[in-house]
């Protein structure tokens, strides 16, 4: 079922401690290219810390993180983003006072190259670049039909589900090779969550590798090609959803407590 192609992202013995707490401990992981990989685990099992390590917000104390053949641990977040890793946050972190379209344009920031002078002098190249960026942002917005007609809306006025969608689009605006989604269905009702899963598959079908944190087992069963279970900062087991969900440790530590 999960026939891993060349991994787009590899973690080797990645460790991050906070004081005496081992948030992530000797974690190794290969994320197969072009697939959806789900990470499950109870609260506090280190899933979000793992995302923060991959995206450069934290630097691991040990181990290495290799993205498309290139070590990225220790790189600052904006560099990691430029190399092709985009993410969303568990508690949506949009630029709430800005327009939907502006949020997407910030997402494209790294691809727009005109510098301060070009912008100041409003050179022809700068104007052309801004216009094509605006055009691609408008096209991107069509990915979610629910967002039709919202591009001049201030983000804080959107519904919760639509803010989630905008955050995903802002991440996609950077044209990442790898998209990290931190509990994208959190706070959504089951209908919306089911719809979101189909949308995540559409993202994969555009050629973006997806790494997805999910707390809810039923969500991940419908979408992940490959599942990794974590507990107390360590990998418990990985494989197909069926393999992982039948694993006794997963049943005990995770399903049992849910």
């Amino acid at each position: 079922m999960s026939a891993p192609a060349e991994p787009v992202l590899s973690l080797r013995d990645v460790t991050k401690h906070f004081g005496g707490v081992r948030a992530v401990n000797r974690m190794s992981l290969d994320v197969p290219s072009g697939a959806i990989t789900g990470i499950i685990g109870p609260n506090g099992s280190g899933k979000t810390t793992l995302f923060n390590l991959i995206s450069g917000i934290y630097e691991p104390q040990a181990g290495e993180i290799v993205f498309r053949g290139r070590p990225i641990h220790g790189e600052p977040p904006h560099r990691v983003s430029m190399l092709g890793v985009a993410r969303t946050f568990q508690n949506i972190r949009l630029f709430n006072e800005m327009l939907v379209i502006e949020n997407l344009l910030v997402g494209m920031h790294a691809q727009l190259l005109s510098g301060l002078w070009a912008a100041g002098l409003r050179t022809r190249r700068f104007i052309a670049e801004e216009q094509s960026a605006l055009q691609s942002a408008i096209e991107l917005l069509e990915f979610f039909p629910e967002l039709a007609g919202t591009h001049d809306t201030v983000v804080k006025n959107l519904s919760y589900a639509n803010r989630r969608r905008v955050e995903i689009l802002r991440a996609l605006a950077a044209r990442p090779a790898l998209l990290l989604l931190d509990e994208p269905a959190a706070g959504m009702n089951t209908t919306e969550a089911a719809k979101l899963l189909r949308d995540i598959r559409r993202i994969r079908d555009r050629g973006v590798t997806v790494l997805l944190i999910e707390h809810n087992m039923s969500v991940i069963s419908g979408v992940a090609d490959h599942v990794v279970a974590m507990d107390q900062g360590e990998k418990v087991v990985e494989g197909s959803f069926d393999e992982v969900s039948r694993h006794p440790k997963v049943l005990a530590s995770y399903l049992g407590s849910d």
Partner: peptide, 25 residues
């Protein structure tokens, strides 16, 4: 109206999220 201006506003609102969009703080 400019990319850098947008980056400034994004950093003002959420530095970490701005970083994740490739903005150098």
């Amino acid at each position: 109206r400019t990319r850098i201006g947008r980056a400034m506003r994004s950093v003002a609102q959420d530095q970490e999220a701005a970083r994740m969009c490739g903005v150098s703080v």
